[in-house]
Amino acid sequence: MKKLSFLVFFLITTLSFGQNARWSAQKANAWYAKEPFLVGSNYAPANAINELEMFQAETFDPQTIDKELALAKSIGMNTMRVFLHDLLWQQDAEGFKKRLDQFLGICAKHNIRPMLVLFDSCWDPNPKLGKQRDPMPGIHNSGWLQSPGADALSDVSQYPRLEAYVKGVVGAFKNDKRILAWDMWNEPDNTNDNSYGQNHTIKTEMPKDRKIAIVTRLLPDVFRWSREAGPTQPLTSGVWIFWDGHDWSNPAKWTPMEKVQFEQSDIITFHQYSTADALEKIIPVLQKMGRPVICTEFMARGADSKFQTHLPIAKKAKVGMMNWGFVAGKTQTYLPWDSWQKPYVNGREPSVWFHEVYKPDLTPIDPAETAAIKQATGVK
């Protein structure tokens, strides 16, 4: 009897551990083999300046989302990367779940399966619920919010709240086939040097080394919390790869943050705002890790990162591609990053639009680009 009880305990413990463990490469590749060539955008509706405005009850706009995602479907996009926020859970967990469910229903209507992002280290470190501010004239992403904000990030007494958010939202949708994957933390080592950080007059960001140290310690917990919620979808956190020459194939050269990202992710994701040649070089390096590879941010015209050049390379290698932005609007990410130093005001305009696929009137910024997307996705 004792042997039987021990065997039952062993099997339950082993099964639980297996459910909470990182996916094997075999499981990840079997999952990816069933997926099409993934193409989409980092998405917020044009009338939302940030994650809170997208999902708070007063400003959630399913009609606009439906119209814009219909446009995405028309050019063959089949995924979107969508940012959530811990304050939405704190504000109204049940209402947030209902609105997220409604959003997923709209996505499914248009055959789009989004990747949902839980946390984000980019832009404003002081998020606040309620009415969101208007865009700052002429500045790229002037209202986007970090999650968690600096106060919560530096206050361990708030970590149980963050854990409840992660387990609550992942647990609520853990079996939802409308969701492609979960992104644990967007650019966790981004310290916003040129916006809210050390190189700008605003300087509301916490010190660089302190922020990176805190997030490096917290990110493994976020992976663990998510796995404990039992998701059937893969987990990831993407490394930014903006430069040439770094030896990504050598784990000894990874930063502590990159080590967590690469070693905890079920699927490998990365950001690459650089040339087609650089993309072609990095793909085989990442694929040597033996897992599916998806680029979750690309396409900055001013950085020579373009649909026409990058999508054919990615499709040949079956590397999913998600550009930044879809319809130009309140995020103003059609303006370049350097608009934080030189705002586009008083009639000044960029020579080329930086991000986005469509203008506010829903016409393409460049018809050659939408033609390239259709060609890559097989839409006629």
Rank of each mutant, 00 (worst) to 15 (best):
N190H: 13
N192Y: 09
P207H: 04
G168D: 13
M206W: 06
I212W: 04
L145P: 01
D209H: 11
E228I: 02
D189Y: 10
F223Q: 08
D189E: 14
R178D: 10
W185E: 09
R210G: 08
T191I: 10
L219A: 04
N194W: 14
P148I: 01
G149R: 12
W123T: 08
E187G: 13
G149C: 09
D189C: 05
I214W: 10
N175R: 07
I202F: 09
D221H: 12
D209A: 13
F223V: 00
G149D: 12
Y165G: 00
M184Y: 01
V156E: 15
W225G: 01
K211T: 05
D193R: 12
G171P: 09
I214F: 04
L153I: 09
A229M: 09
H140T: 07
T201N: 11
M206T: 09
P148H: 00
D151E: 11
A213K: 13
P160R: 06
R227H: 01
H140I: 03
R161W: 09
F223I: 03
K128V: 15
N199M: 10
E228C: 04
R217C: 05
Q198S: 14
Q198K: 14
W225N: 02
G230K: 00
G149K: 05
G171N: 04
T204Y: 11
N194K: 12
E205V: 00
G130E: 08
W225A: 04
N199T: 05
W185M: 08
V169S: 06
F223K: 02
Q198G: 05
W144L: 15
P231R: 04
G197N: 03
P188K: 02
N192L: 06
E187Q: 12
Q146A: 10
E228F: 08
D151A: 09
S154M: 11
A181T: 04
